[in-house]
Design a protein around this nucleic acid. Sequence first.
DNA 1: ACTCAAGTGGACGATCTCGTCCGTTTGGCA
DNA 2: TGCCAAACGGACGAGATCGTCCACTTGAGT
Lengths: 226, 226
Amino acid sequence: MREYSRIADDHGLRADARRNRQRILSAARAVFADHGIDAPMATVARRAGVGVATLYRRFPTRDALVRAAFAQQMDTCAQALTEALADPDPWRGFQHLVETVCALQREERGFPAAFVAAFPHSKREHARVRERVEQDFTTLVRKAQAAGALRPDFHPSDLAVALLSHCGLVTALPDDRAASRRLVAYLLQSFRAEAAREPLPPPSALSLRNLPLAADGSQAQRRSEG
Amino acid sequence: MREYSRIADDHGLRADARRNRQRILSAARAVFADHGIDAPMATVARRAGVGVATLYRRFPTRDALVRAAFAQQMDTCAQALTEALADPDPWRGFQHLVETVCALQREERGFPAAFVAAFPHSKREHARVRERVEQDFTTLVRKAQAAGALRPDFHPSDLAVALLSHCGLVTALPDDRAASRRLVAYLLQSFRAEAAREPLPPPSALSLRNLPLAADGSQAQRRSEG
DNA sequence: ACTCAAGTGGACGATCTCGTCCGTTTGGCA
DNA sequence: TGCCAAACGGACGAGATCGTCCACTTGAGT
């Protein structure tokens, strides 16, 4: 399960470099939380107590920094999926998965922006991991539906719908935990089989493959995009 | 009902100035749709075929421009509320209100960003209009609950939760109409009285007064914020 | 037609951010 | 202890955006 991502790209780095890398990641989380995902790179560097050159050497693009900074959160998401699959009660697993990811979005202030920012970047990289996530979640959905708990017309892409809309909510209202919890409660209730009293419009063509759930977070940095 | 906003601040403007003002608003909608709400002011000016000075003279801040550009959409929202109140079937009115606002967010590409951007700017201005909106919606909620259609634990602030989360979804996926429709369907179904099988967490402290529904859109420009 | 206040456009200086370059420092190995 | 590749930090030039200033143009009333 740990296979989903490797947080530490520290291998082969000198001790001081490794130390600085961690300081940068920590500073990035703090700065992104306070000033948003678009905060100047120099601000992150200053907060980390390093020069901008050091920052750019470790993370050539803002995107790489963002991904690495929240790799741990991404990992937690992936872990929640594995746990959900292992749960003998598939609905409880499903519910736990949604609540875990949403709680993460709610509590870690910079994470939601990173979540949506990472969304369209599915450039065929890490395709295998993403496919695995999609397969796993589809399996979970089938199990929960077979158990009669999840409504039969639930489509796997609805997870993306739920997570992205929740993401938008906490982005708009970073301090309003109650609002976030309410939305999650409403959504989970409407996903129950008993709530399926009226038909739904056709599902989105969204693939879960596009969701950053897969936690390719770290090591996205060595892209030499020409 | 038209009282909610006045789109035209054209009074006392010279004919050419009025013409340019409209060109700017039209250009702004187009540019915001294509390049987001943060597009350079100069781009808007160029697209409108006017100089930057003209743009700044009419709309001293980006915020003023955004509000004015989407005043008409805001107005449509407010109108939907009035219509909902007038509907003899309060649930149908409620449903229509939510669907109208969400359709607007879905179709008018720049609007969602404007919607959330306008959100925290409730600086006591236009307080009367906002209160009126809140009152009206609360009345609608009570009627729909009395009719046994809307779940009794629905709180007026849940409208803000729904609209803001939907806003986030269409912002993240501007081209995915299906996703937007799905979310709206799920939410509306979970708002039905029959869906209330489990209790909800406490509602948000959000006031509808803070929602830009009130369409103070235009004329926000003459603020000389020192 | 004449007048002039209202309107206009674009140049410009200020500010900000980016990402690189280069001279200096330092960790780790022999 | 001495060496040197790795790591470092800050200065710097390029580029973008902002919002103002000012000389020129034009609509509309007489």
